[in-house]
Amino acid sequence: MKTVKFLALPLLATALVMTGCASRKPANTTDATQFPSGAGTVNTQGLSEDSALNAQNLAGASSKGVTAENKAFLAKRVVHFDYDSSELTNQDYQTLQAHAQFLMANANSRVALTGHTDERGTREYNMALGERRAKAVESFLVTTGVSPTQLEAVSYGKEMPVNAGHDENAWKENRRVEINYEAVPPLLK
């Protein structure tokens, strides 16, 4: 009887950890064509439905920290990664720097950084990789001066692909971190 208890505890602990890794509500995926053309200037391609709606929601948005130079970078809400990597690429630094500038100028802004992977690898490995990717973006923003209280890093692993294909192009799109403004998004008009 003691053997059963000792075997059940690690299984229960593992199950609790795995369910806690993706504690946020999963979203349905969509593309930008589902939104009216006058809904805003944010590029929602490659975002989940909730993220796209969030990006389009300009109610309560702020123009503080939005400059002509960083407007295009603020419109980008997805950072992509190489295969099996959580290293930021040089092309993502300007995007992340623009979001950091905006977040520092708007202390009431809140961002969820959702890490995603392609379909290759085990669920457990991909949950950890998605978390490393989200934490890499979070670390860059905090190092730049953003308050950690404005950020939340979450991993969905391979559970929420934006492209359901099974080739390199699909996998490339799915290896990402989405920058989802949950409060006071940038006003980009």
Rank of each mutant, 00 (worst) to 15 (best):
A22I: 01
S23K: 14
S23L: 04
R24W: 00
K25H: 12
P26D: 05
P26F: 06
A27P: 04
N28K: 14
T29S: 14
T33E: 14
Q34C: 04
F35M: 05
P36I: 00
G38N: 15
G40T: 13
T41P: 10
T41I: 09
T41W: 01
N43F: 02
Q45S: 15
G46C: 04
G46F: 01
L47Y: 09
E49A: 14
E49M: 12
E49R: 13
S51T: 02
A55W: 04
L58Y: 12
L58N: 13
A59K: 15
G60H: 12
A61P: 07
S62R: 08
S63R: 11
G65S: 09
G65F: 04
E69K: 06
E69L: 04
N70Y: 09
N70Q: 06
A72M: 05
A75P: 11
K76M: 08
R77F: 00
R77S: 08
V78A: 06
V79T: 09
V79H: 04
V79P: 01
H80R: 07
H80Y: 11
F81N: 02
D82R: 07
D84K: 15
E87F: 05
L88H: 07
T89Q: 15
T89N: 05
N90H: 03
N90R: 07
Q91G: 07
D92S: 15
Y93M: 10
Q94H: 08
T95Q: 15
T95R: 02
L96D: 09
L96S: 07
A98W: 11
Q101Y: 03
Q101P: 01
F102I: 06
F102R: 05
F102S: 07
M104G: 07
A105S: 15
A105R: 03
N106M: 03
A107V: 05
A107C: 05
A107Q: 13
N108E: 10
N108Q: 12
N108T: 10
S109T: 07
R110P: 03
R110V: 06
V111Q: 11
V111A: 09
V111P: 13
V111S: 03
A112E: 14
T114K: 11
T114C: 00
T114P: 00
G115C: 13
H116C: 11
H116E: 14
T117I: 05
T117K: 02
D118Y: 03
E119C: 05
E119A: 13
R120W: 06
R120Y: 11
R120V: 13
T122H: 02
Y125D: 13
Y125I: 06
A128F: 12
A128N: 03
L129I: 01
G130F: 12
E131C: 02
E131M: 15
R132M: 10
R132P: 00
A134G: 01
A134R: 03
K135S: 12
